[in-house]
């Protein structure tokens, strides 16, 4: 059975404005999606190294995110990455240069954060290309995302109902966000038996083999 992990940050200790709904957003996804609940790290227990290639070796197996098939992070973000509330374990930032995902079991990573997949400068491929090391899709927002507790639960319900990962994310965002926001995804492709566009949640439909990352597709649309 597939495994699920979440990290969320409401408390930024003055580094940024606190959030109200990151925990609800992430936990409603976590408890609603069918699968094994593997980790739930929040506030001061959510660390950037849990996501980072540099984190490999810190723990006995590999970084936390590589232990699960899907991870959702809810907290502050920007085109360069996402932000954590504590700096004691590294610098409190997951920067795209520190990301290399998919060499464990991780298939999908979802950032309920502002602008992680923004491409206004046409730089989204340069930033995130090297993060794909077997990873299928990064899901997120092109624009700001609202601090609301809905999209995570809707995403989980739609995955459970058999929608593709991409369609579930798109539909959840349209349902939970206003029309001035834009959902986005970046997916990796290439290789025999690979079609990450048609990925479903494990046990709910077809799941692609890990892509070779020889080419990539970025899409955004209005909520």
């Amino acid at each position: 059975m597939a495994r699920i992990g979440i990290e969320w940050v409401n408390k930024y200790h003055g580094r940024g404005r606190d959030l109200n709904n990151a925990q609800k957003q992430a936990e409603r996804f976590y408890y609603k999606l069918s699968g094994v609940k593997a980790f739930n790290w929040g506030d001061d227990y959510a660390w950037d190294i849990d996501f980072e290639e540099e984190g490999v070796g810190v723990f006995d197996v590999t970084s936390w995110v590589e232990r699960v098939h899907i991870v959702l992070f809810s907290g502050h973000g920007c085109p360069n990455g996402v932000r954590f509330g504590v700096v004691g374990h590294d610098d409190g930032e997951l920067h795209y240069t520190e990301a290399k995902w998919g060499n464990g079991v991780l298939n999908w990573i979802c950032f309920d954060s502002c602008r992680v997949l923004n491409n206004d400068d046409s730089g989204v491929f340069d930033r995130w290309r090297n993060a794909f090391d077997g990873l299928h899709i990064i899901l997120g927002f092109d624009t700001a995302a609202n601090d609301k507790p809905y999209v995570g639960r809707y995403f989980a319900e739609l995955l459970n109902d058999g929608y593709t990962v991409i369609n579930a994310w798109k539909k959840a965002c349209i349902e939970g966000e206003e029309s001035d926001k834009k959902w986005a995804y970046l997916r990796s492709a290439g290789g025999s038996g690979v079609n990450t566009y048609y990925d479903h949640w494990h046990g709910k439909g077809w799941v692609s083999k890990d892509p070779t990352n020889s080419w990539r597709v970025w899409t955004r649309g209005g909520c």
């Binding site: 491409n119 491929f125 001035d180 597709v217 899409t219 649309g221």
Partner: peptide
């Protein structure tokens, strides 16, 4: 009506090549 928005796709076949 308050706005018109678009769904856009960009495909990168190879690093450095035109998308």
């Amino acid at each position: 009506p308050i706005s018109v928005t678009y769904t856009e796709t960009v495909i990168e076949r190879k690093k450095g090549e035109k998308t």
